[in-house]
Design a protein around this nucleic acid. Structure first.
Lengths: 138, 138
DNA sequence: CGGAATCCAGCGGGATACTG
DNA sequence: CAGTATCCCGCTGGATTCCG
C-alpha cells in the first residue's frame, strides 16, 4: 500500500515505521474507536449497552467501529440465538493491550493538557503574534 | 450512564478523562501532525525542508499543521527577516514529550501490527464468519 | 521563500427508514 | 434487539493562484 519514502534528514530511523503508526492512528484517530474500547473496558457488553453508554454515537458508526475492531481481533463478538436477539462484545487480550497503550497516551494528555491549554490561550492572547524575530543575519 | 458491572480489569476510571484524550487524538489523529513532529525530530528545519521531507503533504496542510503545533506550544517558529525569507521550526520540550508518547504508540504498533494483520486476514478468509454461537439459553 | 486565499472533489459520518 | 441500506450535508484536505 504505502510506497517507500525517501527521507533527507539525518535522523530518520522511525519515519519508515510510520506506516505501522498510520494504521493504528487511522484506527484510534476516529473518536469512536477509543470510546468503544474504553467502554468495553467494563467487560462484556451488548450492542444496546454500548449504544446507551456512548452518548453521541449513531448505530451506523457503532456497528462500523465494532466490525473494524472485531476484524482486527481487538474484540470478540458473541451472538446468542435467542428470541430477543442478544450480542455481546468483549475486549480480547490484544484489545486490552491497545487499551493500555491508549491509556498511556491518556496519561500524557492528562499530564500536559493544562500546559497545552495554557500555551494555546497565551498564543491566542498574543493574537497574531508571530514567532520571535532574531537578528537578521544577512 | 453505564450501569455498574463486574470489571475484569483494575481500572475503569478513564472514560471521564476521554475529553483530554480526544484533544490529543484530534491532534495526532490527522496523519500530518505525526509526520511533521517526527521530521522535526531531526532538529530545527525550514518550511521548505519540511515540505521536501514529507512527500505527500501540501502547503496548506503543512502550514496548518505547523500553526496548530505552534499554537499548542509543541514547536517554536523563528522567522528571519532576510531578503530570501527564512523560517525555522523546532520542537519544544513539550513537543519532544509528545514525540516520546507517540513513539510509545509506535512501539505498540510495531509489536502488534503483524498480529493485527494476521487477524484481519483470517477474518477476511472466514469471510462473513460471524461471532461464535454459544448455546442459546433461552 | 513562506505563506494566505480560494475553489472544489471526496468521503466521513449523522439522521432516517427498513429488516430479521 | 441488533443491525443494514440510503440519503445527504459538512468538513477535510488537495490543487491552484496570488502576495510580502
Amino acid at each position: 500500500m504505502a510506497s517507500a519514502r525517501q527521507i533527507t534528514g539525518p535522523c530518520q530511523a522511525w519515519p519508515q515505521d510510520s506506516a505501522f503508526i498510520r494504521e493504528v492512528l487511522d484506527r484510534i484517530g476516529d473518536k469512536w474507536t477509543v470510546l468503544v474500547v474504553s467502554t468495553l473496558n467494563a467487560g462484556s457488553l451488548r450492542y444496546s449497552d454500548l449504544h446507551a453508554s456512548i452518548p453521541g454515537i449513531s448505530q451506523r458508526m457503532l456497528t462500523q467501529t465494532l466490525k473494524h475492531l472485531e476484524r482486527d481481533g481487538l474484540i470478540t463478538r458473541t451472538a446468542y440465538a435467542e428470541v430477543p436477539p442478544r450480542v455481546e462484545y468483549e475486549l480480547t487480550d490484544l484489545g486490552r493491550s491497545l487499551r493500555d497503550a491508549v491509556m498511556a497516551m491518556a496519561g500524557w494528555a492528562a499530564a500536559h493538557h493544562s500546559e497545552i491549554a495554557g500555551n494555546r490561550a497565551a498564543s491566542d492572547l498574543t493574537g497574531v503574534g508571530r514567532g520571535k524575530a532574531p537578528a537578521s543575519a544577512g
